[in-house]
Amino acid sequence: MKSQVDVRQRILAENESRAAGIRERFAAQGTLVLNLISSPGSGKTTLLEETVRGFAPRHRMGVLVGDVATERDAARLQALQIPAYQILTGGACHLDARQITAALERIDTDELDFLFIENVGNLICPTAYELGEDFKVALLSVAEGDDKPFKYPAIFSRARATVITKADLLAHTAFDMQAVREQIQSLQPEGALLVTSTREAPGIDAWLDFLSGALAAKREAAGG
């Protein structure tokens, strides 16, 4: 006999409840947790290196970085004297909350102001997985082209901030910043758009200011 069973459950409910646990832990200690997502080579690790240089010793920072097979990115960040841990996904195209929970056993995150999670270089797969972050940040490098937000709407509609990287290349491309601004506004009306270069002007001040503001807002909301 045939029968129908109602379920009505998010497919990733288990990941989401694990992520909620991580979020709770960092809410209690006032650490701002960001999940950085972009295609390979957009400049995630470089931006984090410059962020550490710009914020130390004012802020304490830690990084978890997902990579398919190498430990290179974590080594780059450890060289700057911050706790950094490489999560090797063994071929998987995204991080999930279980991997974050396990990685948090391996580095000391108790006193951090910021915990950055650099996701596996991929604009699609990481989008579906909550990692316990306060919010997602999407990076888009100038060389990738100005049509990407509408091509990858899932990530750009979820990201609270989109960071345009490698702005020093604007002079060499036909990248239309206004077109990107309009796509972001359509996908995520509250989203911030920050233009950066780690090579020359405009630098990364807009990004650092955004981070300071987000940290202050989180702590203020928590009554601290």
Binding site: K2, V5, Q9, R10, A128, P153, Q185, P189
Partner: peptide, 29 residues
């Protein structure tokens, strides 16, 4: 995706489409 509203030209906003859910099962008892 469209850029502007066909009637008034304003920038359109995107909503919904985030579903990823198991609704129900059909089983043979």
């Amino acid at each position: 995706w469209l850029r502007g509203c066909a009637s008034c030209g304003a920038l359109l906003q995107i909503r919904g489409g985030r579903e990823l859910e198991l609704l129900d099962l059909e089983i043979e008892l």
